[in-house]
Design a protein around this nucleic acid. Structure first.
Lengths: 318, 318
DNA sequence: CTGTTAGCGCATTCAA
DNA sequence: TTGAATGCGCTAACAG
């Protein structure tokens, strides 16, 4: 169990000085080709790996970016994360993943930990309750997802547009009694924004609204389904694919009701089990890549703060 | 944008020496209560946060543990991860998460990256194809999940026991024609082990086996369902909850068939949508915690290499 | 109990 | 083109 080698050892073994080795490793400055080769040979031979923490301390740059997601088991979020990881690796960053579970306290704690680790940047999946104050000090090295916030770059979803698109699509399909199953307005985006969009869509399309708001899980979808599946209802828009699953369960138990279900989200499972669903997805992978790209841009040269708004796309076959 | 403070600054500001500050921070050694208070006050006042990388370099311990999972979007895996993160935090570790996507090359790469980062330990979610060679050098600081391997601690699932339990349970329920829908034997545990367990269970219970093997996704479950849902079949065991979803889709399209579905897994969704399913779950959260605990034990004092075998538990209401 | 000192492994001047 | 010297922020001996 010998100690790990250091550039000093490499220098000794290749008969040069530490700084030359450092130059070779970081591919900078002019090094005589022959010297370089010699050093590279030694490095390869001993499988030398320079210490990150030493470098980090010296250069004040850890090449780590922190990712704070609300829930590891959210399909949307882990799709986004999966998409950005390779991009980060590619630029030499590694990701430190933390879970907030929608707790602002945890976000603050995690941000502190990340600060202590001197991470170069952070990608934070927002949720209602987060305030600007909690993000103080991270301007220009933090990209916010799902939420926007003054002074921070962000990647958001066009919630209103999505509901609109769904509503008018259903109308074109001939539906006139389109109800809505959503989430408490307490949740700003998924809850409030989408619900209001539904209401205004109804106004525009001259439909009488019928809505029920609950929580995010499918149990809520199931429980509230009856309220938005009346005898007149011909279609229901679900704020979330998860909610749609609840509705489908309800509809299976009430087979006499013939209702078109539409939902925002992209759980492939939903489309698999219930092929006649109308789904609208934002492309979480795209969102993840966008966020990563923007963060990297911020870190290399001070790129301007920007907000991206992802439009939804229908994935139905109609 | 002033520079970050260092313990030197804190020492100066509180009129003491660096080491005393260090002692206070690390709560070690004896420090005069008054001095301690003074220092703590200064620290709080300036929101001083000691640099991790400096400490890491000095102590040769990064307090980071790497987690290599196969897929971020696997319910089983991210449940396990979610469970171990808090435990790791609690012990002062942070997690660096990497995704292998079932590629052994990526595992090797990631392991190298983690080595460079001088992580203290690794939790690796195994898959078929991994060899001992790839793990060389990580003995005693790597816990393997799902797979076992000489010289490494591991947390595995009792695949054979699970299938057995399921089979005998179904038999007790009166089923005599129990078929099996599984995964290619190419996949050692989920594929081979479970399949063989089914075959031997049939032998023991004196049943005639009927099986079909495919891939892991629900499409495969759907495609193969017909083969294992004959007119005589009264129950089918699915190697995976995902496969069960495929079977249910098939059964919905063939309502005349009345077949009891049983599956290994714990996607709550399955039980929600199809309450009559018989599910057997291993407790992925438990597995995650177990792995984390074992790793931490290894890191603190050289705990012996151990293999944990998680028994499955029926979650049906029968 | 406390301050001083000496590195940890590396990148970066500065001379050579 | 190169090596020697310096210090990043911190902990651990050691000496007071």
């Amino acid at each position: 169990m010998s100690k790990r080698l250091t550039i000093k050892d490499i220098a000794r073994l290749s008969g040069t000085g530490k700084s030359t080795v450092s130059r070779v490793i970081n591919q900078q400055g002019d090094v005589h080709p022959q010297t370089r080769q010699r050093i590279e040979a030694v490095i390869k031979q001993h499988q030398f790996i320079p210490s990150r923490s030493a470098r980090a301390m010296r250069v004040n740059e850890s090449r780590v970016i922190g990712v704070i997601l609300a829930r590891l088991d959210s399909a949307a979020e882990n799709q986004a994360v999966s998409a950005m990881l390779p991009l980060l690796y590619q630029y030499g960053y590694d990701a430190m993943v933390l879970e907030s579970r929608f707790s602002t306290t945890k976000v603050t704690e995690h941000l502190q930990v990340l600060g202590q680790r001197e991470v170069d940047g952070v990608i934070l999946f927002g949720f209602t309750g987060l305030t600007t104050g909690m993000l103080a000090g991270w301007e220009n090295k933090l990209v916010l997802m799902v939420q926007s916030c003054r002074g921070f770059s962000s990647v958001c979803y066009d919630d209103a547009g999505a509901v609109n698109l769904l509503a008018s699509h259903l109308q074109q399909l001939g539906h006139r009694n389109i109800s809505y199953l959503g989430v408490n307005e307490e949740d700003k985006t998924t809850g409030g924004d989408r619900y209001r969009a539904y209401l205004s869509a109804c106004q525009q399309l001259k439909l009488t609204p019928l809505a029920a708001l609950g929580s995010l899980d499918y149990h809520s979808g199931y429980d509230l389904a009856a309220q938005v599946c009346t005898d007149e209802t011909t279609a229901v828009i679900c704020a979330t694919d998860t909610l749609a699953l609840g509705v489908y369960k309800y509809l299976r138990q009430n087979p006499q009701k013939n209702i078109q279900v539409a939902a925002i989200g992209n759980t492939p499972l939903l489309g698999f089990l219930f092929p006649d669903v109308v789904m609208l997805e934002f492309g979480y992978a795209t969102a993840g890549k966008l966020a990563a790209r923007q963060l990297i841009a911020h870190l290399s040269r001070a790129a301007p703060v920007r907000s991206f708004l992802l439009k939804g796309k229908l994935t139905s076959d109609f």
